[in-house]
Amino acid sequence: MIEAAMIWNEPNNKSHWDPELDPDWARFGDMAIRAAQAIAGANPGLPKVLGGISPIDPLFMINMRERGVLDHVDAVAVHGFPLDWNLWQIGEWPAKIDEIRAVTDLPIWVSEVGVSSFGAEEVQAWGLERTFELLAGRAPRIHWYSLYDLPRAWEATTRHREAEGSSYYRHFAMGLLREDGSPKPALDVFARHPGVFGLCQWFHYQDHRLDDAVAWMKRLGVRHLRTGLSWADSFRPDALAWFDRQMAALADFDVTVTFCFTPEHRGLAPHHTSPPIEPDEFAAFCADMIRRYAPGAAVRAAE
């Protein structure tokens, strides 16, 4: 059911890790090593991936290397959104991967890449085609973000929300499908390149889109999926029942599961970006989920 375990999401992005509480990422590095060791204890054969970095920053990767984190994972990952948030052009994708390749010998996954249709759906379709041209064959895994638009009634995972202006609202238009499930032009582009892209689709607690998402992914021939199991959500009522339902629904896919989000009551500060008070608690959550959904030996993901 799980082909790889990813430790956190965008650890160098303040929307996912608080740099004021951990300015040199020493706490993060310690937590990541503990989590990797716990995952290995639960399933020694399961590949471990350092959470995709955004922005793509070789200095951050050097920091992780010097702290010993890269000694405990089997791959690293990057995220890129050059048409929406990054300060580089889409044609620089190969160079950005090379920046990370220059500081580590580990395989480099592109665990999130996407284009918003906020400005025009035609821009998204063009961006997907251009991304295919630039990235096909350059990474063991490429996960397009995402299948669905984020419902407008929900909140995007950012620091300042509406104060970010159009940068915030772009988060709601990243899907190949609109909020109502109708396809955008980019869906046809995605379908023309079967097997090249996996998908990254976050499923929220009790997500009403789960079954429809599975049907769409099978229709599109998607094999590789990246999603998450939230440590914070594990404290919700009937959390394990929801996790069981989600993972059972995804059983036909090769799933990279991302473990992240600190429960407010277990952080140094009451926020999902906070370093945990006890990093071993996050490690224990990772191990529990692996024992539940990927026990024993696992086939290694492509390198």
Rank of each mutant, 00 (worst) to 15 (best):
D288C: 07
F253G: 01
H271G: 08
G45P: 14
D254P: 00
R34A: 00
A301H: 11
L199N: 02
G296E: 02
Y169I: 03
P94Q: 07
W202H: 11
G296M: 05
A301K: 10
R192A: 01
A102M: 07
E303W: 14
Q201H: 04
A153T: 15
V299Y: 11
P194A: 00
L134H: 06
E122Q: 10
L240T: 13
G127T: 10
R159W: 13
I7P: 01
T273D: 04
R159F: 11
N9Q: 13
T262V: 07
G181T: 06
M289L: 03
G91K: 08
L177Y: 08
R245E: 07
P44Y: 14
L147T: 06
W17R: 09
N9W: 12
V222E: 05
F259N: 02
F118V: 01
N63F: 03
Y293L: 04
Q201N: 03
D105I: 08
H224E: 13
W8L: 02
W216L: 02
I100Q: 01
A139Q: 02
L83Y: 08
F253V: 00
R27P: 14
K14G: 11
G175F: 07
Y169M: 06
C260E: 15
V123W: 09
E3G: 14
M247Y: 07
R245M: 11
M31G: 05
V73Q: 01
F81G: 04
W216M: 03
F285R: 01
F81Q: 05
F259R: 12
M64S: 04
W25T: 11
H79T: 06
D180Y: 10
H265E: 06
D18P: 03
E99L: 13
A36R: 00
Y169C: 00
F81I: 03
V196G: 00
A136I: 10
A191E: 01
P82Q: 02
A139Y: 00
H79K: 05
D188R: 07
